[in-house]
Design a protein around this nucleic acid. Structure first.
Lengths: 337, 337
DNA sequence: TTGTATGCGTTATCAA
DNA sequence: TTGATAACGCATACAA
């Protein structure tokens, strides 16, 4: 155990606790002799300042909490999360900050928020009515919301609507008339549909209505390959069969593509598929996945920079949505007639 | 700010701090009336117990540190990390534990260890001479080492050697005579070659020597696709050209495969490639990647369970290495003659 | 059932 | 240059 405390060192070295503290934090403010003696004793006793006590006294822990709406198992099944963390990490590293992953505690994200010893929070995909927001406000800590609605405070988003619209227009222009949409399910049971899903849906619909298409088949799948594969069944049974699918995540799109090919369907000839995210692996599937690129790493980096600004006491305004763009690969083509 | 403290609530409610504390932590030990009043006042004032102060007093923070040998940007570029976290997360969720990602602070993992307010550590890929081990020992916290050498304490490993040997034997049996090995570079600058790399190398060599093959071409690449692609150049210039490659990571293998195909090489006809890990995406490349499967999620889960056991004061012995197995896919075949 | 007093291990203010 | 001592905010023996 970390039993040896600053008092032990002070007593053994025959100095006050202040002197020991200075020896570690302000070496210059101590005489050469006493400093050396203190450090010597500390070394011998194997003393290490207690991080928690230090944090309480300094009123900062050096950690930022990443609020994760679901279980780690689920969320880290989507490479999106890794990409985001890469962005966060690049900014945090420059400020000696460390990242605390905070998933719901026994199903409650509010409880998790209250437990977390951090200097600030970055939330992910919260809706405006999420009870975690109330808990966050109570904590009174700098907070940045990613993929959320314009709640009070700093929000970082991408142009979900524009990206979705471009994706839908792409299929329309290829000649597809009967489409299916794979939406994202609500991330947290109590809350309704995600802000991100709402915006993308609006984008899809704008393009479809503009082209006078019939109502698309509405499906739902979380951002995992199994969920995407699962959706294939509904697609298989649908009459008339959609010739194109717009998915709100690359993972679901890839899972679906896999299931379709396993069932003997030709992609894209019999089924065109468009994803969302442009994860690195989207370029690696066979065929490559046509998808909407969003700058995930940049989004993470931006969110991290904002929370750091807040930490430094600066005022922060929510930046405009980051741009999205359609990346056309092999998974889309004109429908076979 | 979280300005309102337990004392404020106590004063406003006209009770002692103890009563307030009880109202939150031991509601039963308080009279109905006072409890309600305290909670009422707490609500009105927007009181939330300070997690840090609480942790200091309870002597536990509810967080476990994951010691990451390199930057988050680098480590999360490898899906291996996501898989591991999925395993850790499934165990931690059951114990209301939260995960702190601890990369080196200004290049020093030791400093990062000293700063981390956690109840225990899980380390990743540390060598026996890593200075972080000393810092860890000083902290006196429960610690489990993953992918390490049998240092003192609990260690979780997989059968690296057996897996590597199976991979090499596979190529030998296909008729390859001239091979290249892509090893993992040392994760931390000061330390030598990783324990994992050493064990896998031993496995490769055992199979090659058993077959009387000449010395393989030795290359090195971190577990990223760009690093793997980079390695292709050396391969391209080598004379005689290797017909098969054994990589210590799927990511490097896939990066290499990509570069080779971009250069017009046929995989596997002109170059057979074997990876290591069996990441989900290994099944998604074209052709599929032959690789050594290791149970990453289980490894994470096991490490988490061990550190939880230590936390609970139980004695723990290092489990035997988890099994590995060769998964043959399309990226290997007999060499073209 | 409720309150007093002390401990948790630091840092920091203010004197000396 | 060094040392008492008071925060930091909460939990908890022990007492009432």
């Amino acid at each position: 155990m970390s039993r040896v405390t600053i008092a032990d060192v002070a007593r053994t070295a025959g100095v006050s606790k202040t002197a020991v503290s200075f020896a570690f934090n302000y070496p210059d403010r101590l005489g050469q002799a006493t400093r050396d003696r203190v450090l010597q004793v500390a070394e011998e006793l194997g003393y290490t300042p207690h991080p928690l006590a230090r944090a309480l006294s300094l009123r900062r822990s050096g950690a930022i909490g990443l609020l994760i709406p679901q279980s780690l198992s689920l969320v880290f099944g989507n490479p999106f999360t890794s990409e985001l963390i890469q962005g966060l990490g690049s900014a945090f590293a420059e400020h000696d900050l460390v990242l605390l992953l905070v998933p719901p505690l026994a199903g409650s994200l509010e409880d998790a928020v209250r437990q977390a010893s951090v200097d600030g929070f970055i939330s992910l995909g919260l809706t405006a009515d999420d009870p975690a927001l109330e808990a966050l406000a109570r904590m009174g800590l700098p907070t940045v919301h990613v993929d959320s609605e314009p709640v009070t405070g700093a929000v970082v988003n991408v142009d979900d609507r524009g990206g979705a619209e471009a994706a839908a227009r792409h299929l329309v222009e290829l000649g597809h008339r009967r489409l299916a949409l794979i939406t994202l399910p609500p991330a947290r049971s109590r809350s309704g549909v995600t802000a991100v899903a709402t915006r993308r849906l609006a984008g899809y619909h704008a393009a479809l209505e503009g082209a006078g298409l019939e109502e698309p088949l509405m499906l739902s799948a979380s951002a995992t390959m199994p969920a995407g594969a699962e959706v294939f069944r509904s697609l298989y049974e649908a009459r008339p069969r959609p010739t194109g699918v717009l998915a709100m995540s690359d993972m679901a799109a890839i899972g679906l593509m896999s299931a379709a090919r396993d069932a003997g369907w030709q992609v894209p000839q019999e089924l065109s598929i468009v994803g969302f995210d442009d994860l690195p692996m989207a370029a690696w599937t066979a065929p490559g996945l046509t998808t909407v690129r969003q700058p995930i790493v940049e989004k993470g980096r931006l969110a991290a920079e904002l929370v750091i600004h807040l930490l430094e006491g600066r005022r922060v305004v929510s930046p405009p949505p980051l741009p999205t763009s359609l990346i056309v690969r092999g998974s889309t083509s004109a429908p076979r007639r």
